[in-house]
Amino acid sequence: MKRLFLYRLAVVAGAIALLEIFCLTGVIDKITMQPPHLIARDLYRLLASGRMNGAIWKTSTNTLLALVLALGVGVVAAALLHRLRALRDTLDPLFATYYAVPVFAFYPFFIVVFGLGDLPQILIAFMLGVVAMIVNTLNGLDRVPPVLLKTGRIMRLTPIDTALRLTLPAAGPYILTGVKLAVAYAFIGIIGSEFILSRGGIGYEINFAYNNFDNATMYPLIVLILLASIAINTVLTRWEKTLLARRGAR
């Protein structure tokens, strides 16, 4: 465990140190990139100034909105599809190839239809997240051991109790995998569409800074996105691990 941590630390620290050296010695020129320690300083200043609070707020709320939609619709749709075999079989080719299709390609179309507001972004993020949620929830529901449902009948649980106390917890780890993916996709969807074309949000600010050769804003914001995404992903993976560890191999 310790060895793995040290290995990872060495990789990250090594990469940063290398960048630092390249930037300071001029192998990477100033116009391309600032040395990491300056980026860190700029990030601190940027956050302290509060200049980006509006953009951060916009991106966060949109991501959250898309995520909640994806999770809610995903679970309900999966529960329905689990019962409607024929519909599920028909949609199966869609699910199988869904993530091979560039969902972002629909973004211009949504802009044309809904205008250049938050809605097209939320729609893209929702579309990216919801299918991961549906597929993983379905997978979880498929794997609920029949013997648990029989146990529920022996104990004469009501259908709601069965769903909440047996099916849902039994499928829990798979659903959590879906949640993890949906979180990542929602974030990717919002940032990505802000980035391609929008009127605000962190993605927009990065794009704006890029167009104005404002590296002192662009790099800190990119680092901010990376840190946020890594942090969220790490927390969810931890949670998933403790859940799985408690259940042993299952």
């Binding site: 990542a184 940032i191 993605g203 992903n233």
Partner: peptide
């Protein structure tokens, strides 16, 4: 670490 990279919005790296 690679799995984590998979989950970041890579578009931001494009600039």
């Amino acid at each position: 670490m690679i799995v984590t990279v998979y989950a970041i919005p890579k578009l931001t790296l494009y600039p």
